[in-house]
């Protein structure tokens, strides 16, 4: 696999399921550049309705690519305030601009202490590189 340079902005937080979290009064969640490239061409995206209360790790939507249905898992607990309806209608926006137009949803944080469980950009970069190393090992084995 060709190693590509992936955008990992310093001002965002990250989790191990490849979400970025922009924390302000509320939080905005999206898929990282590496996450969207791993998923591939996204064909469908569905969210739970705005107003849904989710706990960290809960399923808050689904995503489909290459005949694979994956779960969107909440990186933090809270109330989903708004979902990106434009991305839901045209999921290719998540592939094209994961850190911008392809954001997923806004969430009102239930517990700000959970931010401490997230990774900063440096930790996420190390985590991502370790996974790429393991994927390359798989490739050699296959």
């Amino acid at each position: 696999m060709q190693r590509e340079k992936r955008a990992i902005p310093d001002e965002l937080f990250y989790d191990r399921n490849d979400y970025w979290i922009k924390v302000a009064e509320e939080a905005v969640i999206g898929l990282t550049d590496y996450g969207q490239s791993n998923i591939g061409d996204i064909i469908y995206l569905e969210f739970v309705p705005a107003g849904t209360v989710v706990r960290r790790g809960d399923r808050c939507g689904s995503i489909e690519s290459g005949k694979w249905v994956g779960s969107l898992l909440a990186p933090v607990s809270g109330v989903i305030m708004e979902t990106n309806r434009k991305a839901e209608a045209d999921p290719s926006q998540v592939n094209a601009d994961p850190l911008g137009r392809g954001w997923l949803y806004r969430i009102e944080l239930a517990n700000r202490n959970e931010i401490g469980l997230l990774m900063n950009s440096g930790a996420y970069k190390a985590w991502m590189e370790e996974r790429i190393r393991l994927e390359e090992k798989d490739e050699v084995t296959l």
Partner: peptide
């Protein structure tokens, strides 16, 4: 079982 979906499909 490979981690990357495409590799898993192939296997």
């Amino acid at each position: 079982i490979p981690k990357r979906l495409e590799d898993m499909y192939r296997l």
